[in-house]
């Protein structure tokens, strides 16, 4: 099955399950969790069901296009179900069946893996879902975002699209995948992975990025103070991505890492608080 048909099928399945199908966010993010459709919407009381395809960047995971399934930019399919349905695991297994997986002949395991994003003040409890030894999905019961206890809690399902495709297509390398209609993954991605790996590990200008980080951070602070939590959040995302490149470049010491993290976490917490104040005002007016 091609990558694009997996995305299409997942969109279809989750739309049928009551989700609104969003577009991925147009800013560099490390994971589907880091977009407004998840970060903000898991806060507060309002029910929310969304599914979207989100390209995600992890500079440190780059392998110069030489590793069969690790890349610095991969594709996630993100689902948020709020409140948590009682049959979440079943819904997930059915989505695999919808993709054509015979679940009776594959070793599908829910393996403890508690997800946390320190920079977003977010964490949850759950599993990585392994299929014949390959991690294809992260399944998380969201407990906190922006340092705020969630009530109701949300279920977050994050498929790793490349890995899912490699599994479905029985390929040992994602570069052997077909994206769709004869366009190959290798053709689309090899050069991108190679160049970005060189950039992330060797060429990124450390001083320039450090300056950028400070400017992004200050802008986020200014905006959150002005009550513009949405643009403020964009700048936190930029901070996060800049930090990730610096980290891949080994430019950050352990002590510095803690202060960067605390910095982003504080901003996320303020942003979450502003959002809640704002929406709860709206809810009572309605």
């Amino acid at each position: 099955m091609s990558v694009q048909s997996i995305i299409l099928k997942l969109q279809e399945y989750w739309a049928d399950s009551g989700c609104y199908i969003a577009s991925g966010y147009d800013s560099e993010v490390g994971a589907g969790t880091m977009t407004p459709d998840t970060f903000f919407r898991v806060l507060g009381k309002k029910p929310w069901k969304v599914a979207y395809w989100q390209p995600s960047r992890r500079p440190d995971d780059g392998r110069y296009a030489e590793n069969p399934n690790r890349v610095q930019k991969h594709n996630q399919f993100q689902v948020i179900l709020k409140p948590i349905p009682a049959n979440g695991q079943q819904l997930y297994l059915r989505s695999l069946q919808y993709l054509g997986v015979d679940i009776r002949s594959h070793d599908i395991k829910f393996d403890e893996d508690n997800w946390a994003s320190p920079s977003l003040g977010a964490w949850g409890v759950g599993w990585q879902i392994m299929c014949d030894g390959l991690e294809i999905t992260q399944f998380t019961y969201f407990q906190q975002a922006g340092g705020i206890d969630l009530n109701p809690n949300s279920l977050e399902i994050t498929y790793g699209i490349e890995r899912l495709a490699a599994f479905l297509d029985v390929k040992s390398s994602i570069y052997d995948l077909e994206w769709g209609n004869k366009v190959s993954y290798a053709d689309l991605k090899t050069e991108e992975e190679r160049q970005f790996s060189i950039y992330n590990f060797e060429m990124a200008n450390i001083d320039f990025l450090r300056n950028l980080y400070v400017q992004y951070r200050d802008e986020a602070i200014r905006l959150v103070e002005a009550g513009l939590y949405l643009p403020a959040f964009d700048y936190v995302l930029k901070c996060s991505h800049t930090f990730n490149i610096l980290d891949a470049r080994k430019a950050i010491s352990v002590a510095e890492r803690n202060s960067f993290m605390a910095n982003m976490r504080n901003l996320s917490a303020q942003i979450a608080k502003k959002y809640l104040e704002d929406t709860e005002k709206g809810e009572t007016n309605e």
Binding site: P68, D107, I108, D132, G133, S172
Partner: peptide, 27 residues
């Protein structure tokens, strides 16, 4: 594995995965 592997899916899946893991180790 948590299931009988009659079609050898589990073995071949793990064989592919371990190769990627060793590639990472080698990196």
């Amino acid at each position: 594995s948590n299931i009988p592997d009659e079609n050898k899916n589990v073995v071949s899946g793990n064989e592919r995965v371990i190769q990627a893991t060793f590639e990472d180790a080698k990196f």
